[in-house]
Design a protein around this nucleic acid. Structure first.
Length: 594
RNA sequence: GGGGUCGUAGCUCAAUUGGUUAGAGCACCGGACUGUCGAUCCGGAGGUUGCGGGUUCGAGCCCCGUCGACCUCGCCA
């Protein structure tokens, strides 16, 4: 007999009846009848029922052992008898009649119950993560994560990609997010940075001739957390390809994502390749967002012309001053109580916007102040343009284009939810393409890169030389699923002259490029293939597949919102000796005392 | 750094809206019970109502401050 177990806890079936077995695991649940008691014994694989009777030598220990203690059980497999089958358990037809039980490790009073699906405070869960991870849902999420990563690897390798590891200690980069810095012991006053992404390395791999690279890559950014954004660190399926166009990149990754979602999504439908391509500009207009949730069928329309010079004075006047009007349809909502419309307006104000106008149609007749002032002709025009039904509602947002797009997008989401229009049990993918290369920074009063400065501008050098920078598009694309941005990627700019020119338009001197991106710009001078790639977020993929609203539910040991690991006590102070070695002197007395 | 929600037993929640000794379920401890699978029944222990101040005859509840958690804006090329 093995020292700890002959079978695991989900292994025994009625074929094993009569066998002498040894099981080890945690005491999940105990049901004590005084002269007879049951233990649900749990391990990673599942649950087996242990029966102990008064006359068994194991009885005394079974009676006193606490939940979540680790025990080893010797016994004989017996059939439960038809009326005592538990159909919810794979092992539900058998039980193990214990002849002896050994306590391998005793559990103290639990700060967090393992049994049951109740919700518990984040702080307690994080502090006792090892207990939390024993719980069914979280345990399953982490196993799912592992399987998803294994599947991604297999699918990438099948597509001819090769996995490489890139450095974790690297150089700080001037663009992008805030870096995590690591002080150098050998070079006092100098710092390594943890990579925000292996961006430059993967591009250098292309220059080095490796053709198709991927990596399940850890990425580090010192930015604040969100529900879908872990503070500090996260993982990406980072990949890059040589001699490709944007469509080649899409064609390579679509089957991987579609395949992995099909494999793990249960019965949910998954957008088949090719995924819809939506231009950034169109997405901002129709969905009020660059990460549209296509499960929501509502589409926003620009109705500025309907209101221009019209009788609804507030809007007409704003339009003269450059404002636009966007309309959000609310199908079938026309007959809803006025509180629905006023409530939505109030919500918009609470969000910090000017508010939302509305028309509620009843039997084709437009109601409310907007319709009254606008007049029947223009209302008819609106109905025609938006193809509104006789009992529809419609909301209006008016203001500067950027602000209004955002408000309209939020309103689209809210109205879709309120009217229960969001399609369920489906994963809707799309590509957002044609991002602008540059944008105007209102605060700094200058042209800046709008996303990745290393993207190839569409039209290349000619566009940079001849076009208004703000009109230049980039070969830059995001992949979006159900309103969640999974990744951004680009066809890279592999030509030094175009790179210098692009940076020049953003106000950077040639020498700045040479200094700050020397590794890459230098490499590009010795024969760089055209290349591009992307990097879907692994945590977010698992989050979608596990149907979890919070990214911490798919990460083994996540940090809290303040980027602390409550279990390990990170970040922590270090010894004076460590600081001295690094040549670091703390300016104040260190962390604030509580 | 700004905004929002919350904070009562180890955990999940309640307390008739300012009124007697702050209750219940789970967990824990003790007792009863031979077929349960959220076992059941009886009993026990467990509280500085996050902390500090104020208003009041009286505060878990109202006011001010503070601390903490989460959500969010900024930020995330």
């Amino acid at each position: 007999m093995h020292a700890y177990r002959s079978h695991h806890c989900s292994q025994l079936r009625k074929e094993n009846v009569g066998q002498t077995v040894r099981l080890s695991g945690w005491v999940y649940r105990k049901r004590d009848f005084g002269n007879l008691l049951f233990i649900d014994l749990r391990d990673h694989y599942g649950i087996s029922q242990i029966v102990v009777e008064r006359d068994s030598p194991a009885f005394a220990l079974a009676e006193s052992v606490r939940s979540e203690s680790v025990i080893m059980v010797d016994g004989r497999v017996t059939s439960r008898g038809a009326e005592a089958f538990n159909e919810n358990l794979p092992t539900g037809e058998i039980e193990v009649r214990a002849t002896s039980i050994e306590l391998l490790s005793e559990a103290a009073d639990l700060p967090l119950p393992v049994f049951g699906n109740a919700e518990y405070p984040e702080e307690i869960r994080l502090r006792n993560r090892f207990l939390d991870l024993r719980r069914e849902k979280l345990h399953a999420n982490i196993v799912l994560r592992s399987k998803v990563i294994a599947s991604l690897r297999r699918r990438m390798i099948d597509q001819g990609f090769t996995e490489f590891q890139t450095p974790i200690l690297t150089a700080s980069s001037p663009e992008g997010a805030r870096d995590f810095l690591v002080p150098s012991r050998i070079h006092h006053g100098k710092f390594y940075a943890l990579p925000q992404a292996p961006q430059m390395f993967k591009q250098l791999l292309m220059v080095a001739g490796f053709d198709r690279y991927f990596q399940i890559a850890p990425c580090f950014r010192d930015e604040d957390a969100r529900a879908d954004r872990s503070p500090g660190e996260f993982y990406q399926l980072d990949f890059e390809m040589s001699f490709v166009t944007q469509e080649d990149v899409f064609a390579a990754i679509e089957p991987v994502l579609h395949g992995v979602f099909e494999e793990f999504s249960g019965k949910k439908a998954v957008t088949p390749p090719p995924f819809p391509r939506i231009a950034y500009k169109e997405s901002m207009l129709k969905y009020g967002s660059d990460k549209p949730d296509l499960r929501n069928p509502l589409e926003i329309a620009d109705v500025t012309e309907v209101f221009r010079g019209g009788g609804f004075g507030v809007f007409a006047k704003a339009i003269e001053e450059g404002a636009v009007v966007r309309a959000i349809p609310a199908p079938g909502a026309g007959t809803r109580a006025r509180s629905f419309f006023d409530g939505t307006n109030q919500w918009a104000k609470d969000e910090g916007y000017a508010g939302l106008g509305y028309i509620n149609f009843k039997g084709g007749e437009g109601g409310g102040g907007v319709a009254k002032n606008l007049g029947p002709e223009r209302v008819a025009l609106l109905v025609q343009q938006m193809k509104l039904g006789p009992d529809d509602g419609v909301f209006f947002a008016c203001g500067p284009a950027n602000t209004v797009a955002k408000l309209a997008g939020l309103a689209r989401t809210r109205v879709g939810q309120e009217l229960d229009l969001i399609e369920k049990d489906t994963f809707k993918f799309c590509w957002i393409v044609d991002f602008p290369m540059f944008e105007y920074d209102e605060v700094e009063k200058k042209v800046i890169f709008s996303h990745n400065p290393f993207s190839m501008p569409q039209g290349e050098m000619e566009a940079l030389n001849t076009m208004n920078p703000l009109d230049i598009l980039a070969y830059q694309y995001d992949i979006v699923c159900n309103g969640i941005e999974l990744s951004s990627g680009a066809i890279r700019n592999h030509k030094p002259e175009i790179m210098y020119k692009a940076f020049e338009l953003a106000g950077y001197d040639r020498s700045v490029v040479d200094e700050q991106f020397s590794g890459m710009i230098n490499a590009f001078k010795f024969g760089a293939p055209p290349h591009g790639g992307s990097a879907p977020g692994v945590d977010r993929i698992v989050m979608l597949l596990a149907d979890e609203p919070n990214i911490r539910e798919v990460i083994l040991f996540p940090m809290n919102q303040k980027a602390e690991d409550l279990m390990m006590g990170a970040p922590s102070e270090v010894s004076p000796r460590q600081l001295k070695e690094l040549g670091i002197k703390l300016v104040n007395d260190g962390p604030k005392q509580p």
